[in-house]
Design a protein around this nucleic acid. Structure first.
Lengths: 263, 263
DNA sequence: CAGTGGTCTAGACCACTGC
DNA sequence: CAGTGGTCTAGACCACTGT
C-alpha cells in the first residue's frame, strides 16, 4: 500500500540537520496545522502512515505526537487517531461581572450569560460544608478559624469549564441563606448585602499553571491545557474580607477582561 | 551495587492495578515531591536507579519523567540529572501599575519595582519599527493601516520573564519621542499625555496557554510552563484607542492582581 | 573517565473503535 | 475484523557533565 499522506502536506527529513528527527517531524506537523493544511478536528496521518512516510520507528513518531500534545495542538483518541484540537468557544469574563445590576436577576450570572451565548449551562457537585480554614485562607479572611465552604463545578454544553470554592467566615454565614445549597436570586453576594455586609470592592489574583492530576480529572482537561487559577476576595465597606472565592478554570475556555482607570 | 534510593522514599508497583506502570511510577514520584521528600532543586533518582528499583525498562521510567515534566514539576539537565523544579520568585502586577503617580519617576516601572524587590532588572532586544497592522491589531486600534511597533524583552536576574510589543497608530507616534528607542521618563504613556492624548482607561484581556516554540526560545521556558497572554488597549479621553500592548509572560514568574469596585 | 540524560530501533502484546 | 493508539521491552549509540 502506498502512503496515504498527500504529497506536499509533509516534506522530507533533513539528515544533515542537528535537529532530532522526532523534532523535525513535529515541526512539519505543526507547520501543516498552523497553515491550515490539517484543519481543526481533522485526523492527522496515523502513526503507521508516518512510520512509512519518514522511514523511522514508531517510537520516533510517537515522540513527535507527544511534543504536539504538550503544546496543546493535538489530542489522541484510543483506537481512532490523532486529531487537531479544536479551539473551543471561550467564555469572556468582564470586570463588571459582579456589578449590582447583574445581581438583580433571578438566575445566576453564569446561567444568564451562557443562555445568552447559546450554550447549555449546568452547575453540579454542589457541596456546602463547614471546614477548618487553611493557613492561606485564614490569612485572607483575617485570622478566621472555621469557614463555610461552598463548592461547585460549572459546565457548558456538558463540558466542565470551571471549579470554584467560596469560603466565608463561619460567624458570618452560619444559619443564613448563604449556608443553603441554593442561596437564592443574585447569589451569595446579594445575600451578604441583605445581611448588612455592603460590598465595597473585590481583589482578584490570577495565576496560570499546569493542572494537577485531580484538576485534569475534574475538568476533563486535554493534554497541554493549562489552568487559570483565580482567587477573589470580597471586602465590605468596613474593610472586612467577607468571602474568598478560589476558582480553577480550563484555560482554553476563558478570556478574562478587566477595565482599569488611568488615574 | 544496591539501589541508591533510600527505602521509604518510593514504594513498590501494584501489579494488580489497571494503572499503567509508568503512571504508577509518576504517581509515586509526584507524591514524594508533594510531601517534600524530594525538595525544590533536589535531584531525583537517576533513570538507571529507577530501572533497577522498579525492575522496568528505561523507556518506562522516561515516560514517567515525561509526565512530571508536562506537569511542570521537574526538569531535566542533560548529563546531570532530573531535578525538582524550584518555584521561582513571582512578580506581582497590581492593577494600579499604570496610575499617573507611578509615571512621575525617572525610571520605568519595571526597573523601579524590580530594584525594590531586590532583583536585577534588564530590558533587551529593543526594536522600534513601522509595520503594517495585523488584522486583529487594526480592529483594536480602529481601522489603522500602519503602526509603530515597539518590541522589548524583560529579564529579572538574567532570566527572561516577559516579551512585550506595543503598537501605536503611526499618525500618532511618528516623529515623536515615542518613536525613539528610549522614550524618556514615565515611558510612552507619559509621552502620549504630553502629546495631548489624555489617557482615560485601559482594557486588559488575559488568556493562558502553552507557549509556541518561538516563545519557549525567547523566554527560555522549561517544559510544563504555560504563558499568560495579556493584551492591553489604552484609550484616551476621546474614546480613541491610542496603544495596544501585546505581552507574553512566563506564567511561573507572575501573579496578576486586580481591584474591582463592587458597584 | 564514569554517570547522566537524549535519541532511536525493532520488535511485542494489548485495548479501543468502527465497519 | 482491520486499523488505531497505549504500553512495554532490551537493546544501541550519542552528547553532555563533573571528577
Amino acid at each position: 500500500m502506498t502512503s496515504s499522506i498527500p504529497v506536499g502536506l509533509l516534506g522530507a527529513l533533513d539528515p544533515t540537520s542537528d535537529r532530532a528527527v522526532f523534532r523535525q517531524i513535529a515541526d512539519q506537523l505543526r507547520e501543516a496545522i498552523d497553515k491550515g493544511r490539517f484543519k481543526e478536528g481533522e485526523k492527522l496521518p496515523s502513526e503507521a502512515d508516518l512510520v512509512e512516510h519518514y522511514g523511522v520507528s514508531r517510537m520516533t513518531v510517537r515522540n513527535s505526537f507527544s511534543i504536539l500534545q504538550g503544546e496543546g495542538l493535538v489530542h489522541s483518541e484510543h483506537g481512532r487517531g490523532v486529531f487537531v484540537r479544536p479551539r473551543p468557544p471561550v467564555r469572556r469574563l468582564a470586570s463588571d461581572r459582579f456589578s449590582r445590576r447583574h445581581r438583580e436577576q433571578g438566575k445566576s450570572a453564569f446561567i444568564v450569560e451562557a443562555d445568552a451565548a447559546g450554550s447549555k449551562p449546568e452547575v453540579d457537585s454542589l457541596e456546602v460544608k463547614e471546614e477548618r480554614a487553611s493557613h492561606d485562607m485564614s490569612a485572607r479572611l483575617g485570622s478566621v478559624r472555621r469557614v463555610l465552604a461552598r463548592r461547585r463545578r460549572y459546565l457548558l454544553d456538558g463540558r466542565p469549564v470551571e471549579f470554584a470554592t467560596s469560603y466565608l467566615p463561619l460567624d458570618l454565614a452560619r444559619n443564613t441563606p448563604i449556608a443553603q445549597p441554593n442561596p437564592g436570586p443574585g447569589g451569595i453576594y446579594a445575600r451578604l448585602e441583605e445581611l448588612g455586609h455592603h460590598l465595597d470592592h473585590f481583589d482578584e489574583e490570577i495565576r496560570a499553571r499546569m493542572p494537577s492530576p485531580a484538576e485534569v480529572k475534574t475538568l476533563r482537561l486535554a493534554a497541554g491545557v493549562p489552568v487559570i487559577h483565580l482567587i477573589r476576595t470580597a471586602y465590605d465597606t468596613e474593610g472586612r474580607a467577607v468571602e474568598v472565592c478560589d476558582t480553577v478554570m480550563a484555560a482554553d475556555a476563558y478570556v478574562l477582561s478587566y477595565q482599569l482607570p488611568a488615574t
